[in-house]
């Protein structure tokens, strides 16, 4: 009897701690994502394959991230799974992972002085934990081709010709 109630208190305690820390970290992560996204808005990324006219160097750029979901959200997902339908507690996990992966890709492209990233693709892998009943974390890879203007002179030339 006392063993069972101890376990219950342990689970409830863990849920509360996981919720508080998990939602705090999520909020912080979103703030950082939004800030960095605004900073990188000068570098567009599209999944089209046709390059604008001009001379560019091409280089593969990528960014990946593995983010895990907190215990509270995992527990909530189990409750969701009982009824079926949308599992809202995993939405932020996937949203954060995709945006973070794209940001890291863009940061890599920025370092190479790219002007544009073409043909962006995402690859998502869920990393299963335990018996495979619950998700532990998810890895997202974003990759694309960065177009780096061959020289400053060429780049300005391109800007006028694509008008």
């Amino acid at each position: 009897m006392s063993g069972g109630s101890f376990q219950l208190i342990y689970v409830i305690g863990l849920l509360i701690v996981a919720y508080l820390i998990g939602s705090y970290r999520e909020k912080r992560h979103y703030q950082s994502i939004i800030k960095r996204e605004h900073a990188l808005n000068s570098l567009p990324a599209v999944n089209l394959k046709t390059a604008p006219k001009g001379h560019f160097q091409h280089e593969l750029v990528m960014g990946n991230v593995t983010i895990s979901v907190d215990y509270f959200k995992r527990f909530l997902a189990l409750l969701h799974a009982f009824f079926g339908g949308p599992i809202t507690s995993y939405e932020t996990l996937l949203d954060r992972s995709r945006r973070e992966a794209l940001l890291r890709m863009k940061e890599m492209a920025k370092e190479k002085h790219a002007a544009l990233v073409l043909n962006v693709k995402y690859e998502t892998v869920s990393i299963f934990k335990g018996s495979g009943k619950s998700i532990g974390s998810v890895e997202v890879l974003a990759y694309g081709t960065a177009l780096i203007p061959s020289s400053q002179a060429v780049a300005s030339n391109v800007a006028t010709t694509t008008q």
């Binding site: 567009p44 990324a45 599209v46 999944n47 089209l48 969701h80 799974a81 009982f82 009824f83 079926g84 339908g85 949308p86 599992i87 995993y90 939405e91 996937l94 949203d95 995709r98 794209l102 962006v120």
Partner: peptide
């Protein structure tokens, strides 16, 4: 005008009976 990437996602589970 190119306006960058847009995306949508949805996670779903079916219920126990299904």
């Amino acid at each position: 005008k190119h306006l960058g990437l847009v995306q949508g996602s949805s996670v779903r589970a079916k219920h126990a009976g299904r």
